[in-house]
Design a binder for these strands. Structure first.
Length: 844
RNA sequence: GCCCUCGUGGUGAAAUGGUAGACACAAAGGACUUAAAAUCCUUGCCCGCAAGGGAGUGCCAGUUCGAGUCUGGCCGAGGGCACCA
């Protein structure tokens, strides 16, 4: 028996596929399918996470092609971003060169996987040809009022004189300088995504093929809440503080007001020494929501007192508090410590009054070790007493409105999308500043605004800003000199429309061709990591709506019809005796366990975690492909776990996959070389019926992304075919089944499949391979196993033909010895019968 | 802190409310071989020779003829939190 040479067949078929550019051949074909995996950031080499993502996508793309769809399956590069600048700084390179080099390495590696990608459509977001159109879209959005400029906070490194990304702030300090990071206010560009808050929320309902959990996360992120505004009068002054609350029912529990440091009211004590100090303290807390939530709650007591709107005698103190954000609600709240945990913590710290106003049905809720936020009955609240929480809300809002001291209001948590970045390696924002203070877009005829090549990346601050000439320009309309915007766009902008560009990637005149767009969009299946569940997907949904607003030929508002989020690739972690991380190829397996290859000392095996450079638990895809072949690598990563959960990489696993590739190859050989013999019609019928059953099952499993189960069924078919070699089945049936079988294997292990098929059919078949059709009429020949229970316990089995009637089934069941035994001396009070499933006798 | 997800053998896992552990990995024993590799077969919680019986899907309750699956509470692990991509 000859062995398969995986390196050889990988190469052979990859060359074939590279010549096959069929994707755009027929856009008149009715059935289209746009299959897209999230494009990678060119960080250097591909990692197993990419392998998993693209292996899943390739199964779907190839399966759909075989099902007769016109499939668009492109690939590109999300090639702007911070790592290029860091690498450039470290190695004294140009970010562009570093990026280009990485792209070429990674493209080569992806091609080794044998993906059905149409490389003619390749795009890269750092190419002028790409970002030129992005600048055009930016200007379109600006003209529609979707781009705004406002002040917001950034992390500022006072030593490096640069804005830091959240990940560059470690324990409140800059990652390079180790200086304490400050919060600094800057004018920045924003996309007005909050304009679409309601629509983005409501339209989640349209996304039937999205995971529920992603929709839920987006829903919570948008955070629509119904509440009300209440004006609190400042005692002895003609001033009001407008607060927003979602719990107006707890108004009688209000014991203080808290406003944000950025609240206009703070103007009045901006010269106070104590306040300046307090503000400084606040500015040392990071800008992330997590940092704010975990920071110690601190307040600045003002000399203001607010009048309680329903209790004439009650005046409550006004604090400035670090946990109140100016960009949510009105930047002011009333504190009700008894029923809000943050308010509770704050009240404890500043020894403020705590008045319970909701009584829990369960008396244990009143221990006062924390705030009670559950349902209950209102107490201590005058006219609201004895009402439930929802009823009290209704009544108090009506009262507030009729007294004209406030009104109902809907608030969203979703903030506008800040897109300014003070960095070099990004798409320049096409705006210019005129001498008269006006800010205007660059004339479209002058696009692209190109990044300069000659920059000093080691210079502190933003390289575009410190470039000697780049920012000096002229305003086309008047010819006056002007200054360019030196901020570049957030890389999320690049990835918010790349899927649209793929519909007409070579078009130079505009971002996309409307005809191609309306044929291919929306993406039928989008596949990527769950870590993008909120931002990238939400921004893309916003972009689609913004583009629709600018172009009346665009009818699509949801870019991704179907979404699948895959899990991470994990690996065991290893540490040597000094606690230093070891990579999988630095260790060796012995009888006593793992030892270090370096000094033969014992290795401590840690839990399996997501592959990361820092923990060294990385396995390089290219070397795996070299050893085991592309098919085995793809096969293993798909077979071992459900695609939406984490998968553990293991050497045993990939080696087993390699053995299986070999097993299919030799099965193919055995069937080809089998001598024909007289068949037994009963054996043959049973075999064909079982085989036929799998054709339906596997289609179903692929369409529902149960790829690991689909692979388990492929193992079962292999077992069935191997078993049938020992039975009296005609060669014709075996050959026909084997041909169908290797076609089923195609989406998972395409090289092996094509090689087997070419041996079986002995001809060229490279154009269209059809997914094998099952025979529906054969399905009814299946045997089923009925479970027989007595009082819910399994006591016997009946193997019978499908759809046995209740009467016959009960009769058969009662004939079984063990059932007789269990029913002896008992009276049957009830029979449960579920067709083709179960019989359950309930006795006294 | 807030939001989301997941907990099933030694391991990865399977199971429209209906036989828990399909399929695979690892292990042990065996066959073939001078030997090894490769391949193939067998085994897999407890009691029992067997037939059969018992326990069992993170923990505690509940709904149901029947719960890994549904409901409530608890415990544990992971992801996201707006300038990483």
């Amino acid at each position: 028996m000859n062995k398969i040479n995986v390196e050889e067949i990988d190469k052979k078929w990859q060359i074939f596929w590279s010549k096959r550019k069929n994707h755009f051949k027929n856009t008149n074909k009715k059935k289209k399918f746009y299959c897209l995996e999230m494009f990678p950031y060119p960080s250097g080499k591909i990692h197993m996470g990419h392998v998993r993502n693209y292996a899943i996508g390739d199964v779907i793309a190839r399966y759909k092609m075989m099902k007769g769809f016109n499939v668009l399956h492109p690939m590109g590069w999300d090639s702007f971003g911070l790592p290029a600048e860091n690498a450039a700084r470290e190695n004294n390179l140009n970010p562009k060169e570093w990026t280009k080099k990485n792209i070429s390495t990674m493209k080569h590696q992806l091609q080794l996987l044998g993906l059905s990608i149409d490389w003619d459509l390749e795009i890269s977001t750092c190419d002028e040809e790409y970002y030129k159109h992005q600048q055009e879209l930016f200007i379109d959005f600006f003209k529609k009022g979707l781009v705004i400029r406002k002040e917001t906070y950034v992390n500022w490194d006072p030593v490096e004189k640069t804005v830091l990304a959240n990940e560059q702030v470690i324990d409140g300090r800059g990652w390079r300088s180790n200086a304490l990071v400050e919060r600094k206010k800057l004018y920045q560009w924003f996309f007005n995504i909050s304009k679409f808050s309601d629509e983005l929320l409501k339209d989640l309902e349209l996304l039937k093929d999205w995971p529920e959990k992603v929709k839920l996360m987006q829903k919570n992120w948008i955070g629509k809440s119904l509440g009300c505004e209440i004006n609190f009068k400042i005692a002895n002054e003609d001033k009001f503080i407008k607060v927003f609350t979602t719990r107006p029912d707890t108004i009688f529990g209000a014991t203080f007001l808290a406003i944000s440091v950025d609240h206009p009211m703070c103007q009045s004590f901006k010269n106070s020494k104590d306040f300046i100090e307090f503000k400084k303290k606040c500015s040392q807390v990071g800008t992330t929501e997590e940092a704010i939530a975990n920071a110690e709650k601190i307040g600045f007591k003002t000399d203001l007192m607010a009048q309680h709107p329903f209790l004439k005698e009650k005046k409550i103190p006004v604090y400035v508090a670090n946990f109140i954000l100016m960009d949510y609600g009105t930047g002011a709240i009333f504190g009700c410590p008894a029923h809000d945990q943050r308010d509770f913590d704050f009240a404890k710290k500043y020894k403020l009054e705590i008045i319970p106003v909701v009584k829990s049905e369960n008396p244990n809720g009143e221990t006062m070790s924390g705030a009670y936020t559950g349902d209950g009955t209102i107490i201590n609240s005058d006219f609201l007493n004895n009402l439930t929480v929802p009823k009290a809300k209704e009544k108090i809002v009506n009262k507030i409105e009729s007294k004209k001291i406030g009104k109902k209001r809907i608030t969203f948590r979703l903030k506008d999308w800040g897109v300014s970045r003070q960095r070099y390696w990004g798409c320049p924002i096409p705006m210019i500043y005129l001498k008269n203070g006006k800010v205007v877009p660059v004339d479209k005829s002058e696009l692209p605004v190109k990044l300069p090549n000659n920059i000093d990346i080691n210079h502190k601050g933003n390289p575009l800003d410190s470039h000697p000439t780049w920012k000096k320009t002229k305003y086309k309309k008047t010819g006056e000199s002007a200054i360019r915007e030196t901020d570049t766009l957030d890389t999320f902008v690049d990835s918010s429309w790349y899927f649209i560009r793929f519909c007409s990637p070579k078009l130079t005149s505009k971002p996309f061709d409307e005809k191609s767009f309306s044929y291919w969009m929306p993406v039928d299946q989008y596949i990527g990591g769950v870590e993008h569940a909120i931002l990238h997907l939400l921004y893309s949904r916003f972009f689609m709506r913004a583009i629709k607003l600018c172009n009346n030929k665009v009818k699509v508002k949801e870019p991704f019809k179907g979404l699948f989020t895959q899990g991470m690739v994990c690996h065991e972690t290893y540490k040597d005796r000094n606690g230093k991380w070891l990579s999988p190829d630095q260790i060796q397996k012995t009888k006593e366990g793992f030892v270090s290859k370096i000094d033969s000392s014992k290795v401590k095996v840690g839990p399996s975690e997501a592959m990361s450079k820092s923990k060294k638990n990385i396995v390089d895809p290219e070397s795996m492909i070299k050893i085991y072949g592309a098919d085995a690598v793809r096969w293993f990563i798909l077979s071992d776990s459900p695609p939406d959960r984490d998968v553990q990489w293991s050497t045993e696993g990939v080696s087993a996959a390699h053995k299986f590739v070999q097993r299919i190859w030799s099965l193919n050989d055995k069937i080809l070389n089998k001598k024909d013999e007289k068949s037994d019609s009963k054996d043959e019928k049973k075999f064909l019926s079982k085989f036929n059953d799998y054709l339906f099952k596997i289609s179903d499993l692929i369409e529902n992304f149960h790829l690991n189960v689909a692979i388990a069924k492929i193992y079962e078919i292999t077992n069935l075919l191997e078993d049938s070699l020992t039975k009296k089945i005609s060669k014709k049936s075996l050959l026909e089944s084997q041909i169908k079988f290797v076609k089923i294997v195609m989406p998972f292990a395409p090289h092996l499949s094509c090689e087997c098929l070419s041996k079986l059919e002995g001809k060229n078949f490279y154009e269209d391979i059809q997914w094998p059709k099952g025979n529906k009429s054969l399905l009814k020949d299946q045997e089923v196993t009925l479970v027989v229970q007595v009082n819910g316990k399994k006591r016997g089995l009946i193997v019978t033909k499908k759809d046995l009637s209740e009467k016959d089934a009960l009769m058969e069941a009662k004939k079984i010895e063990n059932i007789k035994k269990n029913l002896k001396d008992k009276k049957i009070v009830k029979n449960i019968f579920v067709k083709n499933k179960i019989i359950n006798f309930i006795t006294t």
